[in-house]
Design a protein around this nucleic acid. Structure first.
Length: 644
DNA sequence: CATAGCCGCCTTTTT
DNA sequence: GGCGGCTATG
């Protein structure tokens, strides 16, 4: 999760961290108490899938009936709720639950054999550790005197318990969040955490941040209108402090290509007027929509940056090089080991590997130990034995350099493993590998005490979202999810079509909860905008290689979009009138006119809200509750109040 | 054992 | 439309 837990330690040093990296630190420090090996690897999604496939097969089930991904999703949900294998097993009463319990158990067994934790384990193991060890809670509470959690609406059960445990000694906790911006329910975020905060910490002061200092009044009204369609929510109104600005524009295009080009054209128009590319962003529902934008922007020579999960670290050559480094720290990381044992090709094929594996299984040792004992494996002939021995030798040789800086080791591994030679005709791959080594060098510079283990654990949690550079001078492209917490002067939200936004996969539940989450997602996108908001859809869109006729998003209807004006290329305006603007018209009399609820600014008293307005012409008075807490009755004529 | 080519699978969002 | 894994072939 991206919400960060910032903690103010003693001596005014502030630690800013995500929950996940905090957990890694805790688990590393208290590994013995958590019952884990501190050199653990962190398995990402593709590693998880491999383990899940193995788990399903080990349970003698068909992966067609028990889709590893589905099983993983179910296991993830359980872990986020802190339900461990034994608890789940005990409660499993139907066939499916019992089977899943078996897969869950096997999956955990495989992970622990490989000394690996998945993302959910990081949270769960830390939460369980804190639950079982009051002394650890106490130490952490002493170290972190104050805990501040941003985006609290997106915390899950495990994170809630971790937070609660850390502050148990002092109760110094501050959280911020907005239930209307909860967009991670699908990965276990529990909205009850924020709704029940006042019950969990009864002494807490609640500060309602109702005024919005970011967006123009009409953007907020658009957002308000949309979110009001959610049934399952606490009524709340966004209060603008800025006046109405540019109209919210809904545009329709023939297809995604035209849409992309039009966005490019409008971006150019903006930059032509002196707007910086730093102040413009394009949001979309799914990552695959970035491709056509990229092509258009390259053609238009518009510099852009894609803010996406883990693009760089997903490249083959990077994963290969990292796999070498991973097994130096954790030789039990079988996934990494299998990845590189024959990459580049060194004559260790499938048959050889299978023989070592069955030897290892028979003698109850790890795969790597099997490799080390290759001489004793009778099923292998001389040639493969020699090849394995020299591979093991090479790895053991690298291990001698494991202490200290990462970059020199990475470079050595890259060259001596044969990867460099293997990739020499692929310029791109070479550059990427060099970039990784450079990044490692940067890590070496920054880290207090660089270590390969720490480096690997850090980059496992790294996502390009964290690396978003707000002053890069490049147009930002990102998913609506990635947009959370950011803001831009100008925003383009593309692909407002049924099936995309809301996404078709959100159409499965009975209660419409998933649809409401999609609506919140759109709401998040809209409220990132300070001034210029463009929403667009295309009449045809290519999906999985198929050009399909689209249906405008139902959310556009909810916004009151005037589709009659939505002719291709020509913009249609969202049919929302601006009430703040309307009230200005009534000011034509002798003194300004106010309505209750209006936000005003006073030269001396600052910002306040109109409580009452006595409309008696020249001598009209207004009762204002100021943000200082004072309530004052003022003569409108003399008060010189300005509406905000 | 290596390589190429084919088939089938998935395909939302992310730490 | 992309990737991984499987198979057939050298």
């Amino acid at each position: 999760m991206r919400q960060r837990a910032a903690t103010l330690g003693t001596g005014a040093s502030t630690h800013i961290s995500t929950f996940h990296s905090l957990c890694v630190r805790i688990l590393h420090q208290y590994a013995a108490k958590a019952g884990i090996n501190p050199n653990f690897s962190i398995y990402n999604e593709s590693d998880q899938v491999k383990c899940a496939i193995q788990a399903v097969k080990d349970c003698e089930l068909d992966t067609a009936n028990f889709s590893p991904r589905r099983c993983l999703a179910a296991i993830s949900t359980l872990k986020n709720k802190l339900i461990d294998v034994d608890t789940f097993k005990a409660d499993a009463d139907d066939f499916f639950s019992k089977t899943l319990a078996g897969i869950y158990a096997r999956y955990q067994h495989i992970l622990s054999e490989q000394n690996a934790l998945d993302f959910d384990d990081l949270l769960m193991k830390a939460a369980v550790l804190l639950r079982n060890c009051p002394d650890v809670c106490c130490e952490l509470g002493n170290r972190f005197k104050f805990l501040l959690i941003d985006e609290y609406q997106d915390t899950n059960r495990a994170q809630y318990e971790i937070a609660k445990a850390i502050v148990s000694a002092h109760n110094n906790i501050c959280v911020t969040g907005d239930p209307d911006q909860s967009i991670y329910r699908w990965r276990g975020a529990d909205i009850r955490n924020i709704l029940a905060f006042e019950e969990d910490w009864p002494d807490a002061t609640v500060v309602k941040l109702e005024e919005n200092f970011r967006s123009t009044a009409n953007i907020l009204e658009t957002a308000d209108e949309l979110i009001s369609f959610n049934q399952n929510r606490k009524e709340k109104k966004l209060v603008p402090t800025k006046p109405c600005g540019k109209d919210v524009i809904v545009e329709v295009y023939e297809d995604e290509l035209e849409e992309a080009r039009a966005v490019g054209r409008q971006v150019r128009e903006l930059t032509g007027k002196g707007v910086s590319l730093n102040d413009i962003a394009v949001f979309y529902r799914v990552n695959s929509m970035s491709r056509v934008l990229e092509e258009a922007f390259i053609q238009d020579k518009i510099p852009y940056q894609i803010v996406r999960g883990t693009e760089f670290y997903n490249r083959k050559e990077i994963r290969d090089l990292l796999a070498y480094l991973k097994i130096l720290v954790n030789p039990d990381n079988e996934i990494a080991l299998l990845r590189i044992i024959n990459t580049p090709a060194r004559g260790i094929g499938k048959t050889t590997i299978d023989r070592v594996r069955s030897y290892a299984a028979l003698h109850n040792i790890t795969f790597f130990d099997g490799l080390k004992n290759v001489e004793r494996i009778e099923s292998l002939s001389k040639a493969p034995k020699g090849k394995i021995a020299s591979f093991v030798n090479m790895i053991e040789g690298f291990k001698k350099d494991i202490a200290g800086k990462v970059a020199p080791l990475a470079e050595r591994v890259f060259n001596e493993s044969g990867l460099a030679e293997f990739l020499k005709q692929d310029q791109n791959a070479l550059e990427n590998a060099n970039e990784l080594i450079n990044a490692a060098a940067q890590y070496d510079e920054q880290a207090e005490q660089p270590s390969l283990l720490d480096y690997l654990q850090q980059i496992s949690l790294f996502s390009d979202v964290d690396a978003y550079d707000a002053s890069s001078g490049r147009l930002a492209l990102m998913t609506l999810h990635a947009a959370k917490g950011l803001e831009f002067e100008n925003v383009f939200i593309i692909g407002a079509e049924d099936g995309l936004l809301p996404h078709e996969r959100s159409n499965t539940d009975e209660g419409g909860d998933e649809l409401e989450e999609e609506r919140r997602l759109f709401f998040v996108g809209i409220t990132r905008t300070k001034v210029g908001l463009h929403i667009s859809y295309a009449r045809y869109r290519t999906i999985r290689g198929q050009m399909l006729r689209t249906i405008p998003s139902r959310f556009l209807y909810e916004l009151g979009t005037d589709f009659a004006k939505s002719t291709p290329v020509i913009a249609a305006q969202v049919g929302i009138h601006c009430s703040a603007l309307a009230s200005v018209d009534r000011d034509s009399g002798t003194v300004p006119y106010f309505i209750a609820g209006q936000l005003v600014r006073h030269e001396k008293f600052g910002l306040g809200r109109v409580k009452e307005f006595n409309d008696v012409g020249e001598r009209s008075s207004v009762v204002v509750t100021f943000n200082t807490g004072q309530t004052r009755t003022l003569m409108v004529k003399y008060a010189n109040l300005s509406k905000v």
